[in-house]
Simulated assay, not measured.
Amino acid sequence: MSFTLETIHLPHLPSSLPVHVALYRDVQNAPFLRQQLISGNSEFEYALIDASMILSRAHVFSAVFRAVIDYLNKRLKSRNVHSEIVFSFSPTNNIADSFRKFGISDSTKDLLVVKVSVTPEITHDSVAAHLAQSIEGSPVSFTDETLSEIADVAKIKKAYKLGALTSAPAGQVNGASNAEKMRLENSVIGAIALRGAT
């Protein structure tokens, strides 16, 4: 299967909780996917994230780590670990606002999908098969390079209230210097960690 689903074991988390991540471009059925989430269809229990709001792999892993730690410690503020991942991207404690800013919308074209193996039957193969039949889009590699092509830096800075940081034009993380990229990434990851501490 040429489908690019990556299965990751995050450090400091139990190896029994692998995280499956896939990235899509040009998604055609975002309204259908969003409706499955809203209706609580358990087959679509994923974190569906608007990839234009993602800076890097580290940005994703920070939010996933936060959510899984809260799941393990029975501190979830939302419905399940997958909705908690979307919530964990937010620098504020407003769940509805975090879904509006970071979650899938009807107009989402670039989509990041995250699934945590919270039960043994959730495997790399089962997730890959379900996504292959459910998502109408082009799978692309989950790399910092691909994410930097998709990221809308202006929107990300607005969501994290980082207006003072200089940046390249929207969607061009590559246009920024490495130092700028690192500053922005550190600020975003810091905001995720800080909110978790409150």
Score class of each variant (00 low, 15 high):
Pro18Tyr: 02
Glu43Met: 15
Phe65His: 12
Tyr46Asp: 05
Thr198Cys: 06
Pro91Arg: 14
Val68Lys: 07
Ser83Thr: 14
Pro139Asp: 10
Thr198Leu: 13
His130Tyr: 09
Thr119Ile: 13
Asn186Leu: 13
Ala47His: 07
His9Met: 11
Ser126Leu: 03
Ser187Arg: 13
Val116Asn: 03
Val60Ile: 11
Val188His: 02
Leu112Cys: 09
Leu194Asn: 12
Leu162Val: 08
Ile104Tyr: 08
Phe142Glu: 08
Gly103His: 12
Pro139Ser: 08
Pro139Asn: 12
Ala168Thr: 06
Thr166Trp: 12
Ser98Glu: 04
Ile8Met: 09
Ala193Glu: 09
Phe99Thr: 02
Thr166Leu: 14
His9Tyr: 14
Glu180Ala: 12
Tyr46Gly: 01
Lys74Thr: 10
Ser39Leu: 12
Gln28Thr: 03
Gly196Asp: 06
Ala176Lys: 03
Asp26Val: 05
Leu131Arg: 06
Tyr24Leu: 03
Ser39Gln: 14
Ile49Met: 00
Phe44Gly: 06
Thr146Glu: 03
Glu180Arg: 12
Asn93Lys: 15
Pro11Thr: 14
Leu72Gly: 04
Ile104Phe: 01
Asp97Cys: 07
Ala47Arg: 01
Ile189Ser: 04
Phe89Thr: 02
Ser187Thr: 03
Ile104Glu: 00
Thr7Lys: 09
Asn178Phe: 03
Tyr71Ala: 09
Leu131Asp: 04
Val188Leu: 05
His12Leu: 08
Ile8Asn: 05
Met1Ile: 12
Leu112Phe: 06
Lys115Gln: 11
Val86Lys: 01
Pro18Val: 07
Pro91Asp: 05
Phe142Pro: 02
Ile8His: 10
Leu194Ile: 13
Asn41Trp: 02
Asn41Gly: 04
Leu147Lys: 04
Ile135Leu: 06
Thr119Asp: 00
Ala170Phe: 03
Arg66Cys: 09
Gly163Thr: 09
Asp125Gln: 15
Leu37Asp: 09
Ala51Ser: 11
Leu48Val: 05
Ala191Asn: 03
Lys109Met: 10
Ser105Asn: 12
Ser62Arg: 12
Met53Gln: 15
Ala22Trp: 15
Asn73Ser: 10
Asp152His: 14
His12Asp: 13
Phe44Ala: 07
Phe89Trp: 01
Ser62Gly: 10
Val68Gln: 02
Ile189Asp: 00
Asp144Pro: 05
Leu76Cys: 00
Ala129Met: 15
Gly175Thr: 14
Met1His: 14
Asp106Asn: 15
Glu149Val: 03
Ala170Tyr: 07
Asn178Tyr: 07
His82Lys: 07
Ser98Gln: 08
Val118Cys: 06
Leu23Cys: 15
Leu76His: 00
Thr123Cys: 05
Val21Ile: 15
Asp70Phe: 11
Leu13Cys: 09
Arg195Trp: 01
Ser83Asn: 06
Met1Cys: 08
His20Gly: 10
